[in-house]
Structures are given as C-alpha cells and as structure tokens.
Design a binder for these strands. Sequence first.
DNA 1: ATAGATCTTGCGGGTTCCCGCAGGACGCCG
DNA 2: CGGCGTCCTGCGGGAACCCGCAAGATCTAT
Lengths: 242, 242
Amino acid sequence: MRVLIIEDDPLHRSFLQEAVRAALPECREVLEAANGVTGEELARSHGAEQIILDLQMPGRNGIEAARSIWRERPETRILFWSNYSDEAYVRGVSRIVPDGAAYGYVLKSAAEERLKLALRSIFIENQCVIDREVRGLQQKSLGPNNGFSDTEYEILVDVALGLTDRIIARRRNLSLRSVQNRLQQLYDKLEVYHSLGEETGAINLRTRAVTNALLRKLLNYSALEKAEAELQEWLKQSAVDR
Amino acid sequence: MRVLIIEDDPLHRSFLQEAVRAALPECREVLEAANGVTGEELARSHGAEQIILDLQMPGRNGIEAARSIWRERPETRILFWSNYSDEAYVRGVSRIVPDGAAYGYVLKSAAEERLKLALRSIFIENQCVIDREVRGLQQKSLGPNNGFSDTEYEILVDVALGLTDRIIARRRNLSLRSVQNRLQQLYDKLEVYHSLGEETGAINLRTRAVTNALLRKLLNYSALEKAEAELQEWLKQSAVDR
DNA sequence: ATAGATCTTGCGGGTTCCCGCAGGACGCCG
DNA sequence: CGGCGTCCTGCGGGAACCCGCAAGATCTAT
C-alpha cells in the first residue's frame, strides 16, 4: 500500500507521516506534497489510491484538488483533514464526492487515536468516516428544514459575487420576480431583519445577507474564490452565446 | 525570564515550546495557553512580559487578546505568529500597538532559524522584528498612494456590515452625499467596475465591493467579527442617546 | 380526479442607491 | 490677495431593489 499526504504545514505533514507509519504498518511508502498542484501531479504520476488531503491550502485548495483527482479515478480513497468544519467546506465536499466512494472528514483538533482509527477504516476497510461534528452539520444543512437548499445556495453565491437580480435571472434561467422571491427566502433564513436593532430600514438587506452568511461560515474565502472562477467562466461562455 | 505561548494548535504549541527552549536558554519557565481567554488570564495572573501569540484562534482571537493585554501593560513584548499576512490582520495589528512597544510579526511558513532570531531580538534586545512580506504590506497599505486611508476603511467596513448610506452618515457624522462620495472612491480603488465583463449595469456595486475586499484579503472573518461587535456596541449607545 | 401546498411569473409602488452638476468651505502657495 | 486643489454638501433623476397582491403552473396525496 502507498499513501500520499497533501498538506502545506510542514509540522502537520510530519505528524501525519508519523501517524500513518504507526497506524498502517502495511504501508510501504509515504509520499508528501506541500500544495495542491504538486499533490495532483504526484497523485497522477504514482496512481495514488490513498490520499490524506488538507482542505485549506494557499493556491489550489483541497476541494479543487479532490475534484480533479476523483474525476480521473473515482475509486480513490481520500481522507480530508481540516482545521475547521465550516459549512462551506462541508457543503463543498459533499458536492464532489462520487457515488459509492470511500472518504473521511477528520478535524485536526481530534485526538490522535481518532485519526489512526479513521486511517484504518477508510484505507483498509473502505468505509466512510465522518467526524461527528461534521456529520451533524451535513444533516442539518442538507435537510430542507433548517438548512439551505442547493438552489438557495446558488442564489446566495450569486448575490455575494455582486450580480444584479437581472443577471442572476439570466444565469439561472429564472424570471426577475422569482429571483427576488428566492432572495426573500434567503433574507428570512439568514435572519437579516433581526441582525441589527429594530430600526426599520436601517439595513441594506443584500450586503447584510452576505456578511451574515460569512459570519455563520456558510460562505468563506475559498468558496468565494471558487465561485468567482466559475462566474468568470460563465461570463466568457455567455459572451460567446450572445 | 518567562515566556507565555498562546496558540490553539497543539503541534505548533509544542514546536514553539521547543524553539523557545533552544533560542532562549535564559528562559526559566514557559507557560502555555490554548486559546485567547485563558491566555489573557495567564498573562494577567503571571504578569507575563514576553508573549508569543497566534492571530487566528477560535473564539477570542489574537488581536483582541493583544489589545486587552497591551491596555493593561503596554510594555509587554508580543511576537505575533501567524499563518497569513492578510492585510486585515496587518492593519488590525498596526492599529493596536502602543507607542514604543516592541513587537514582532513572523509567519509560520518562515524558517525555524528566523523564528529563533526574532525571539532573541524582541525578547532580549527589545527590538521590533517584522517579516519582510508583512512589512511590504504595511508600507503599501498605509501609504495614501495605493492603499486605503483609515476613513475609507471605516466606510468599507460599514458597508460590509450592511448599513445604509443614511446610517453610515449618522454613525460617522457625515452628510449623506459625503458618504456616497467616499463610496465612489471605494468602488474606484477596489476596481469594482472592471471585475466583471464590460456589461454595464451588470453588477451590484455595493456587494461586489465587499467581496473584492474579501478576495484581496483586505477584509476577513475576524475583521468582520470585530466590526460586528463594535457595531452592536454603537447601536446600544445610540439607542440610549435617542 | 380534486383539493391543497408549493413554485413561478407579472404588475405596481415605495424606497434606496448611484452619480452628474454645482455651489461653498478650507488650506496651500506664489 | 487671488488662484487652485481638495473635501463636504444639496439637488435631481434614472436605475435597481424590496415586496404585497394575484393569477397561472406543477406536484402530491388521499
């Protein structure tokens, strides 16, 4: 067996190296990469089947790397190893995991023992291991009760990117009014109205919705970065269409 | 000599412990805290005069901790030890450092040797040590040429918090039109107009300004968090006034 | 199949935003 | 002192936003 570690922090990298050697004695080689780009290259050139992946890295982040790795070999087993359980990350991961793939999500704050257990479960038993805390988020956020549906999330992102209602309508193939309806749902769910004092009209709903989403970690830097890239792509595309 | 380490990541904590012991043999005791709150308590109860402080921590973050520590004992020597050189952090630190205080800002990605040198310079020689990269940011961002003046930054924050022009005017003691003038400067400096395709009117200037600021790390989570707290404070205050 | 819930769309209006224009206040310098 | 640049301020108008109302469309369930 061979394991690839993609992690930018050298301390965490050597810690992972250590943990892998201890938990997986059958592992005969451990590769290391310090960022997303070289990580992908290594994964491709060595045909890595077991990967430990940090989500937050400068440049190409973990989610992008995972997506392109899984696109080539969906059976790759990936353990996400992250500092945070931001809803933006959790959502991003859920969105890209292929059907039936074995993966894991363990927080860096977890005890070393948990990490080792997760390593064996995923890489040997081929089972999913999701940190309890992350699991809770998944259920809450993906259930339609309290959380945000995919379409609502799309609109939220569009608003955050600074698109006009009209452009959002064009991009998502909706009428202007429908976009505004969805916006109202958003304002409701994000509790934009109560976020300031009771001064009516004291608030710009649009930007406040975005910062509320940021404050509750529904959005974060890497989500914005990714969304921005997709938007630029779409802009090029739609310029051609017209 | 006694050194206090405030850092949430256990790996980095023990690494710092090690580095301090190696670089400062005259240090007879090293205290550790895993978050801002207990860090402040330890600093107070032990009268710590040398502190190594992580900026990004859950809950009470490094900037808040530093501010309250420096408020009590401005002669405390603090080494900021951070993953990032976001302009938001750099600006936040510059804003709170007392006159003549010795402090340092070293990135976690720096070589171990740099860290040790910085430790000696700050804690023994009482000299400031600012990472080159951070230094560059400081000069660029605080000079009025290319960067943002304090008043512009204030307005940017207010916009990000979702305040209306009218409320911003009231908060900053300006007329409505002045606020809007400043907004136009902001849109200009943040290059809001060119951030999308040349489609005129395709863009909501207000929210786009915020995300542009986020994307270039002029704002980040902890800056928003802090600004939100100050806003709530002001809301209470102004409710009393009225 | 019929009723009810949910989603979409159009219309209309009140409000806020964005900004050009122009007048006034203040400091600087020859 | 008279010009000049910079900032603050008011006015006005076009555009975008927020949202109540109401008529279709779609889907579900009994």
